[in-house]
Simulated scan of single mutants.
Amino acid sequence: MSDESPHPALPESVEVLVVGGGQAGLGMGFRLREAGIPVVIVDDRARVGDVWRDRWRSLVLFTPRRFAALPGRALPASTAYYPSKDEVADYLEQYAVAHELPVVTGARVSAVRREGNGFVAETSRGAVRARAVVIATGPFQYPRVPRVGAKLDDAIAQLHSSAYRAPEDLPLGRTAVVGGGNSAAQLAVELAATREVTMVAPAPPWFIPERILGISVYWPLKLLGILGSPAESRISHYIHSRGDGILGTEAKRAARAGRLALRTSRVVDARPTALVLADGTELEVDAVLWATGFRTHYPFVHIDGALTEHGAPIQQEGVSPVPGLYWIGLPWQSRLDSSILHGIAADSRDLLAALRAHLGRAARTASARLDG
């Protein structure tokens, strides 16, 4: 971080390369720096925190400030109880500076390959070799839009939630928000203030109260040990089977008051001005906001045995069967809370132990070869 240019130089080699400079990559970088292991973090964005700055304008985390911090540094006391996306972005930037994390921005990774007993990553700023690689780009890079959207007339505005910034991005009129998660609920409520909105959820939404007896729901979840439950535990399996829970009941209240229409069905087809639902009905629309998530895709990972045939990471608690390759920031990676900032502390701590063991074995192997 001592380089005065906006883009610090990318070294030719390093012990550990972390691909992705969002919260997962920074948390992993902190652990490695703390352990004295040379690390470089590469990110394709111009500025640390841009992964949050580039989201919709009104976005507020559904996790309280206490549960939105990375290891080694709390959010500033001035941060709102439920931090805004810009507060999180600034926090990540300050976090990198405070811990002197070697983040190389503006470096898009096009390929990570095996080379000998290590790896080489090709980036837009040159190549870098590493003994170990941690993929921290997360699963939210490639928007998933149902193919039926192509059947809608060109006059029907369509956006994926990742491209949405504010209500004025969509024309006034009959708007369908397709999706059943937190993003769909937040955006449906926001849009319903200025237009007729129908939220189309594939299953009955699971609304979770933000507070229980005046206390954030996260506190009893933490105190009862549920928040950090192992991904394979019975309680985690139950919660996973329920699908994405929607924290807060604002959308539920809006539906009851008639300010928002809520339909439980899947979009299975479309005609020029309407979505066709699985229940046989049609929904006339002037605009569609697809809050339909993202597809798992890591086109830059060119390593045999790293991905399934469908492109998903092959990993157990972040550890790949490929020696020296690791993942962090995946939903349900190790624990129930792996998908939120709170879980990065534990996941990065566990991965550090695995990384140290691997680097130790690699060093002993190299020493034995020299002795031989």
Rank of each mutant, 00 (worst) to 15 (best):
P6N: 06
H7Y: 14
P8F: 15
L10I: 01
S13P: 12
V14S: 06
L17T: 05
L17A: 10
V18Q: 05
G21I: 00
R33Q: 12
V39F: 04
D54V: 07
R55D: 03
R55W: 02
F62R: 07
P64Q: 02
A69M: 03
A69H: 01
G72P: 08
G72W: 05
L75Q: 11
A77L: 13
T79S: 12
T79L: 04
A80F: 02
Y82N: 00
S84P: 01
L101G: 13
V104L: 13
T105P: 15
E122H: 04
T123C: 15
A127L: 15
V128F: 15
V133M: 13
I135N: 15
T137A: 10
P139V: 12
P146W: 00
G149N: 03
A150M: 06
K151W: 06
D153L: 07
D154P: 01
I156N: 01
R165H: 13
A166W: 06
L170W: 10
P171W: 05
V178N: 10
A185R: 03
A193W: 08
T194I: 05
V197E: 13
V200G: 04
V200M: 04
A201M: 11
A203W: 00
W206P: 01
P209Q: 07
V217M: 10
L221V: 05
G225A: 11
G225R: 10
A231T: 07
E232Y: 00
I235C: 01
S236H: 02
R242Q: 14
G245N: 01
G248T: 05
E250G: 01
R253V: 09
R256V: 09
A257C: 04
L262N: 04
R263I: 14
T264L: 09
T264Y: 07
V267Y: 03
V267R: 08
R271T: 14
A274V: 10
L275P: 13
D286Q: 05
A287W: 04
T292M: 00
V301E: 12
H302A: 13
T308D: 04
P313T: 05
E317K: 11
Y326N: 10
P331D: 11
S334A: 14
I344H: 14
A346T: 14
A346I: 08
D347H: 15
L351Y: 10
A353R: 15
G360F: 01
S367Q: 05
A368W: 09
G372A: 12
G372D: 10
G372P: 10
